[in-house]
Amino acid sequence: MTINVVVADDQELVRSGFSMILDAQPDISVVAEAGDGAEAIEAVRRHAPDVLLLDIRMPRMDGIEAARVVCDETDTKVLMLTTFDQDDYVYDALHAGASGFLLKDVRRDDLVHAVRVVAAGDSLLAPAVTRRLIDDMVRRQPRPAIAPVGLDVLTDRERETLVLLGRGLSNAEIAAELVVSEHTVKTHVSNVLMKLGLRDRVQAVVAAYESGLLQPGTR
């Protein structure tokens, strides 16, 4: 099955470089490129890609607003590009529905892996840099929760699963922690997302912090 991707970045060399890397993969096809957020939205509406690789900082319409529109209107997964030490808007992107983040100096293999992971419906939460970033944004910019987080709708085991998701653990790591199978973990994760009205694991991380279930700095 081919993963269709739209690449959006206002820097032509960066955009072309990412497109060449992805198009070289037998299971990935870049169906369109875009130079700003508005063009990215138009490309997504036209091509209905599996993944939108989207720069946060772009002219006319930035990546955050574009991500919000794409996530609200479509099933396309959004993978944000950030410089990390300069962008103060990553937390906004989480609320917009982004499924993960990549540094713009990402290695070739990591870029390809990230697109495949996001296309499969997972999120890029494992890297420590993402956890530190979420910690920092929650600490410095407290905001209303992504969705009203009524944790009473969760079973005890689902609540435990949410805590472990908030710590950035993979399904395999959660399974080891809870001494259950990965299949069981997938069921718990699906139940958590459905009951709390969350789009994906990234939003589950934010919900875990904003509900008070986890505190910034928790590991």
Rank of each mutant, 00 (worst) to 15 (best):
L124V: 13
R15L: 09
G17C: 08
L196S: 03
M58E: 12
D75F: 07
T187N: 10
L52V: 10
H188P: 00
E210G: 02
A8T: 11
L81V: 01
Q203A: 09
G197Q: 06
R108F: 06
A93L: 01
G17I: 07
P216E: 01
A175P: 11
E33I: 13
A207F: 05
F101V: 05
G63W: 08
V205T: 12
V202T: 14
M1K: 13
C71P: 02
S211Y: 02
E33K: 14
S123N: 01
Y209A: 00
V202I: 15
T130F: 15
N171D: 14
V180E: 06
E210N: 03
R139H: 11
P142V: 06
E158F: 08
D10H: 08
Q86D: 13
V70Q: 06
L81T: 02
T74I: 06
E33C: 13
M58A: 04
V69L: 11
F101A: 01
I56A: 02
R132A: 14
I28W: 04
G17T: 05
V129S: 13
P59K: 10
G212S: 04
V90F: 11
V149C: 13
G100M: 03
G17H: 08
A43W: 10
Q25Y: 07
A24K: 08
A147Q: 11
K77I: 02
L214G: 03
L151K: 09
D135W: 12
T130D: 11
A208L: 05
I41P: 09
V202C: 10
D55Y: 04
Y91R: 10
H188F: 09
A147T: 13
S29N: 15
N4W: 11
D27E: 14
A114Q: 07
V14I: 15
A43Q: 15
V90R: 13
D87A: 11
F18G: 00
R139Y: 12
E12R: 15
V44A: 08
K104G: 04
A38V: 14
V149N: 06
D136A: 14
V69F: 10
A48I: 07
G166D: 04
L214C: 03
D122G: 03
D50I: 01
N4P: 00
R131F: 07
L162G: 05
V70P: 01
M194H: 14
R201H: 09
L213G: 00
I134D: 05
V149S: 12
G121N: 08
V7D: 08
P144A: 11
E12W: 10
Y89E: 09
A120C: 04
V179D: 15
R45A: 10
H95Y: 15
A128C: 04
K195F: 01
D92K: 08
R201D: 08
E182C: 07
T74C: 10
